[in-house]
Design a protein around this nucleic acid. Structure first.
Lengths: 181, 181
DNA sequence: ACCACTCCTGTACGTTCGTACTAGTACATG
DNA sequence: CATGTACTAGTACGAACGTACAGGAGTGGT
């Protein structure tokens, strides 16, 4: 996959291996050796490309956050194409949860940011992006509430290893997005 | 605090030390040595009372879950005494967040349960208890949505190290708890 | 007094970890 | 072709870890 002499590809392979490992062992469970083995590179490579293990995990989380931001752009398109915001958001959330590893990584990022302030901006990208998205359809307070709902439902579905109650989420989203009476 | 010959108190001291440590280092960051040092007992004591590190962390998380369940009983009383469910719940949530370590431990439990199925019942006690509480005031679907909202807001406040927007949460709670039009 | 038993503690073993480092390899530049 | 630079890979080291264990210390029954 990564040629012998391809620094950029190597770095990327290491980051992707770390991303694949995070759902399995958690951010705190990452080790140079496990990442190197998963990436198919010698141990020395991970210490060559990253000055420390924290540096490596930060790069992996940044990579994950960037890919999440990209998927937000697809969400924006779906929202504009869909007829009902609440239904569309619930469906997108369910779809997002299909890749449980990615969703779990996002939650790992939230928790990791508690103890590592340098991760806090990364941990905000998903929330801020989602709020920005929904602010086209509701006032900011309602948009924030909708994201709380989505994150809470995701967290529960992850922890319980159970599917998302999409219809119930749609109903709740409709309730918070509807202007107060 | 714990006399030389007081097995029950010793076990409890170790568990409480582990609980105090979890917000600082995470469930996965627990070590026999760190817990022993925090509890003021020799290393041998933690391995004497707990057959493994997993056993120790599980006991600590169970202890935390039990104390959370106790606080739920106080919530029930407050709800019955308060005049508005949404306002009361928002205020209780803010109060709950005042002890950030406890709230963080609950979230750590959620995530730990993903990879440790034996923790899953523990990870459900908070959610189930809260839903049961709110089911006295709304239909089950609305109650679940309200808990998603609360957990989402808590997770965000924890990750961002910022205070809770209590008024905003109350508004959103009112929206999801109100019967659909 | 003695014994049986539980409780307690310090130490030791083998493993795994982060990180540093050395020697070697490819490649661009002159 | 020489040479310097960026990359590679294997190894080594000290630290921290989980766990096991041998023996000391206190306690209650007889």
């Amino acid at each position: 996959m990564t040629g012998r002499r391809d620094p950029e590809g190597r770095r990327r392979a290491i980051i992707e291996a770390a991303c694949a490992l995070i759902p399995e062992v958690g951010v705190g469970g990452l080790t140079h050796r496990a990442v190197a083995a998963r990436a198919g590179v010698p141990l020395g490579a991970t210490t060559y490309y990253f000055t420390s293990l924290d540096d490596l995990s930060q790069a992996a989380l940044a990579y994950a956050a960037r890919s999440a931001a990209e998927s937000l752009r697809a969400w924006r398109r779906s929202l504009r194409a869909g007829d009902d915001v609440a239904d569309t958001m619930a469906a997108l959330t369910e779809e997002y949860l299909a890749d449980r590893g990615r969703a779990l990584t996002e939650t790992e990022l939230y928790l990791a940011a508690v103890r590592r302030p340098e991760l806090r901006p990364l941990a905000r990208t998903w929330f801020d992006g989602l709020v920005g998205l929904l602010s086209e359809y509701a006032d900011p307070a309602a948009a924030k509430a909708a994201v709380f709902l989505i994150d809470g439902a995701l967290l529960r579905a992850l922890s319980d290893q159970q599917p998302l109650d999409t219809a119930g989420l749609a109903t709740a989203l409709r309730a918070v997005l509807r202007p107060a009476p």
